[in-house]
Each structure stands twice: as structure tokens, then as C-alpha cells.
């Protein structure tokens, strides 16, 4: 299954891209994150939430969207 991952804020500095397509064979969002943590070890140290179908969701649920968003908190003002 091909999944588009979209990164926001400082996460793009870890991944060096704003979005990418990942070929993924797992089921849960947490499994997808494991794949991303292997690809980007520094991603593990960042705080972010995951959205699918444009909704923040816990990571222990099944992937049900072609697009996953990784959203970190911003503090700037």
C-alpha cells in the first residue's frame, strides 16, 4: 500500500522533505511510525501528533487513509 506522509514544521528539517510516498505493508499507524523512525532516527525525539482523514488520532489504530499527517506543536508568536 502506498501512503503519502505529510510533515509540518520542524519535522521537515529531520526528513528533508515536506511530503513523500511510502510503500507500507503494515496495519497500524504505530507500525508506520516504526518504519519512519528507522528511516529518520531523529524523528523519534520530536513531539508530534498524527492525523489521518484530517483528524488527530491515536497511533494504535488502523490506517484508513491514503494520507497521514505528522503535526508538531508550534510555539512561535
Amino acid at each position: 500500500m502506498k501512503i503519502k506522509i505529510k510533515y509540518f514544521g520542524m519535522l521537515t528539517e529531520v526528513t528533508s522533505c515536506e511530503e513523500e510516498i511510502i510503500d507500507f505493508s503494515g496495519i497500524l499507524i504505530s507500525e508506520l511510525l516504526e518504519v519512519l523512525f528507522i528511516k529518520y532516527p531523529n524523528l523519534k525525539d520530536k513531539k508530534f501528533q498524527v492525523a489521518q482523514n484530517n483528524e488527530l488520532v491515536p497511533v494504535n489504530i488502523k490506517i484508513s487513509s491514503q494520507e497521514i499527517v505528522l503535526l508538531p506543536p508550534f510555539s512561535g508568536g
Binding site: G9, M10, K47, Q49, P72, P73, S75, G76, G77
Partner: peptide, 20 residues
Amino acid sequence: CAFPDKPEQGEVPNCSEVGV
């Protein structure tokens, strides 16, 4: 409810540090 865990100080830089 969106971001339950407060990032540590310095974990996310602010505008005067990274630019805006």
C-alpha cells in the same frame, strides 16, 4: 487535547532563534 505533552524548553525553537 491536541498536544497533551508539553515540549521541553528549547525542544522547539522560537521565531527569534530560527527566523520567521
